[in-house]
């Protein structure tokens, strides 16, 4: 089973430049069509399943607006618990 991840985009910083969507290997990021930020941009969002938490979007994000989470491997969860 592929690794599961998710991203959280901070609308305060996101300017909807679409660079994250252009590099996402899974193509699961879009600019939210029906939502705008305080600055008037359509922010990035996950729009379907498939994020692996690879963090390539965060590597190219010029605003450091993306926080990336990834499901921990089971062994590590057990070890930490």
């Amino acid at each position: 089973m592929p690794v599961k991840g998710r991203i959280v985009v901070d609308d305060v910083f996101c300017k909807g430049c679409e660079l994250c969507a252009s590099v996402c290997p899974q193509k699961v990021i879009q600019m939210a069509p029906e939502r705008i930020t305080a600055k008037g941009y359509h922010p990035a969002e996950l729009f379907k399943d498939g994020c692996t938490g690879c963090a390539v979007c965060a590597v190219i994000c010029p605003e450091a607006a993306i926080t990336v989470y990834r499901e921990a491997p089971r062994a590590r969860v057990a070890a930490e618990a």
């Binding site: 991840g5 901070d10 938490g53 963090a55 965060a58 590597v59 450091a64 607006a65 993306i66 926080t67 990336v68 989470y69 990834r70 499901e71 921990a72 590590r76 969860v77």
Partner: peptide
């Protein structure tokens, strides 16, 4: 952060 998650990247 949810229980089984780790942060891969943050600001």
């Amino acid at each position: 952060l949810q229980a089984n998650e780790q942060v891969v990247y943050q600001r």
